[in-house]
Computed example of a mutant assay.
Amino acid sequence: MLGAARLHRDRWSDERELAHAILGTVVGAAAMAVASLHGSLGEVVVGVLVTVAVYWAAERYAAVLAAAVRGPGRWSRSVAVLRRGWPMIEAAYTPLVVLMAAVLVTGRLQTGVLVALVVATLMLGGFGHAAARRAGTSRAAAIAWGAGSAMLGVVVMLLKMLLH
């Protein structure tokens, strides 16, 4: 898991990209929690992928509209804006891979979902901490931001428990 946390270390170079990763992780985890209520593993995976893609498209559409609606260089600005939001999609993959591996090992979807949600929560804490450090905060503040980000994952896990 530590290797996965370092996977995008150089690519997610600033706090904005990490903020997109936090959003993608939260949306993916919430979609996983809800889709697992009545779906199979395949349905959960497809549900998460489609949900994250729709959120990404909506968020990026709004950003493109704001940044590139008129003037010369529209196309290049639009492409740049779309690339900036890509960590939202990338961050949603790790919990899905964990979900599939856990289900493969245990044979139980709900166990796999719980393990994946724990991993998503740990990722959120790491992303929040890294974003705060890259924004120039102190270590103590970064720990607080990391804990706050991890709390988003805890809320998703509580949602899962309340729905079951």
Rank of each mutant, 00 (worst) to 15 (best):
M161E: 14
H129C: 15
A31T: 01
A92F: 00
W86A: 15
V50G: 05
S149V: 08
G148R: 05
V103S: 08
G28A: 01
A35M: 05
L104P: 07
V79G: 05
L109K: 02
R77D: 15
A4F: 10
V46E: 09
E17D: 12
R108C: 00
V64E: 12
R60M: 15
V98E: 09
L104W: 11
T25M: 05
T121P: 03
V52Q: 02
V48N: 02
V34M: 05
A5R: 12
A21C: 03
H164F: 07
R133G: 08
A132P: 02
E43C: 04
I22L: 12
V115Q: 06
W145N: 09
D14R: 04
A21W: 03
V64P: 10
M88S: 06
V48D: 04
G107W: 02
I22C: 15
L117I: 08
A63F: 11
H129I: 12
P95H: 06
G71N: 13
M157R: 04
L37E: 14
P95S: 07
L2Y: 12
A53G: 04
M157E: 06
M151R: 08
A57S: 13
V119M: 14
G28I: 00
L109Y: 00
L2G: 15
L117E: 08
T137K: 14
A80D: 00
Q110V: 07
L49C: 06
L124V: 01
S40I: 05
L163G: 10
R139I: 09
L159F: 06
A57K: 11
A132D: 03
R134A: 12
R108W: 03
A116F: 11
T25K: 00
S40M: 05
V119N: 09
R133Y: 09
G128C: 10
E59W: 02
G28S: 02
V44W: 01
V105T: 13
T106W: 03
V81P: 04
S13Q: 14
V44H: 02
L117P: 03
R74F: 12
W56H: 07
V45N: 13
A58S: 15
V48C: 07
M161Q: 13
V64R: 09
L7Q: 14
G47M: 05
A62K: 15
A142T: 06
L124G: 03
T94Q: 01
M32S: 12
A120G: 10
S76E: 15
A132F: 04
M161Y: 14
P72L: 13
V118Q: 07
